[in-house]
Simulated assay, not measured.
Amino acid sequence: MSDKPGFLRRALDGLYFASGVAAALCLIAILLLIVAQMVARWTGEIFPGAPNYAGYMMAAASFLAFAAALNGGAHIRVSILLNAVPEKIKWALEVWCFGIATATIAYFVYYAYWFVYWSWRFNEVSQAQDATPLWIPQSVMVVGGGILLIAFLDNLISVLFKGNHRIGDNTVDQSFGE
């Protein structure tokens, strides 16, 4: 069998990468909003809603970065316990952990979807001067959560059928300082 990853694997990795890039662009947007607000203050102009937009971008950056961070090994994991147990128990713990995480994020995404739906249905807007429809920034929470759900499910399936997850090795280099 070929070592070349299949279409689905490339598509999923591309989705996680694109989500991480979108999160990085949200951070750049925060910087630009802060600079624009500073320039507006210096020139005596008003930039209504700038703090709200920065807050929306911060939430978007967080949710869009979750899947890329998970697969990059940046999420906190209790590997001390996993490294101390035999392989069969380790496999069962991995399945249990990814199963619980997948179920939890699925629960979150389901209710986040309905949260966004009702915000849209009732035409809720922000209380600031900009009166942004709240379903727009809230929908990024559903998208980012959905991508994280896919990432957890991807890792759960990988553990079940291949015996190992796809989370990047995030261990400290033992030769550091030598």
Rank of each mutant, 00 (worst) to 15 (best):
W91Q: 14
S79M: 06
L153E: 04
F66M: 15
D169K: 12
L156T: 11
A40F: 04
I30Q: 00
G145A: 06
A22N: 04
V116F: 05
Y110Q: 09
A54C: 07
Y110F: 14
W120P: 02
Y107A: 06
T132N: 05
M58K: 01
K88P: 12
A151N: 12
N83W: 04
F98N: 02
P51V: 13
V159C: 12
Y56T: 02
V39N: 06
L12E: 11
F7K: 14
S175R: 09
V159I: 14
A54G: 05
I89G: 07
F176Q: 06
A131Q: 14
D154F: 07
M1Y: 05
A50Q: 06
L156R: 09
V143T: 04
A92P: 05
V39R: 13
P51E: 10
G144E: 09
E45K: 12
M57T: 03
G6C: 08
N52P: 00
I100E: 00
F47I: 05
A65R: 03
F66K: 00
L153F: 14
F17R: 13
W114R: 13
A18N: 06
T132I: 15
I28K: 01
N71L: 13
A106F: 01
E45A: 15
A24W: 10
A151Q: 15
A18C: 11
S139R: 02
W96M: 14
S19D: 06
E87D: 15
L8N: 04
G14M: 14
V109H: 02
F98R: 01
V35W: 10
L70T: 11
G73K: 11
W42L: 13
T43R: 12
G177A: 11
I100V: 10
V39M: 09
G99S: 09
V143D: 01
Q174M: 12
V21M: 12
K90V: 07
Q129P: 01
A92G: 05
Y56S: 07
W91A: 14
G144Q: 04
I100Y: 01
Q138I: 06
A151P: 09
Q37C: 07
I167P: 07
G20C: 03
V95G: 05
P48G: 03
L93T: 01
K88G: 11
L81N: 01
G49S: 10
G146C: 06
S2I: 13
H165S: 15
M58C: 01
I28D: 00
A24T: 13
W96A: 14
L15T: 15
V172E: 08
W118G: 01
F108Q: 09
P86F: 07
A29W: 00
S126L: 02
N71G: 08
T132P: 01
I100D: 01
F7R: 13
F66P: 01
R77S: 06
G49W: 05
D169S: 14
V95W: 00
S175E: 11
I100N: 00
A84K: 03
A84V: 03
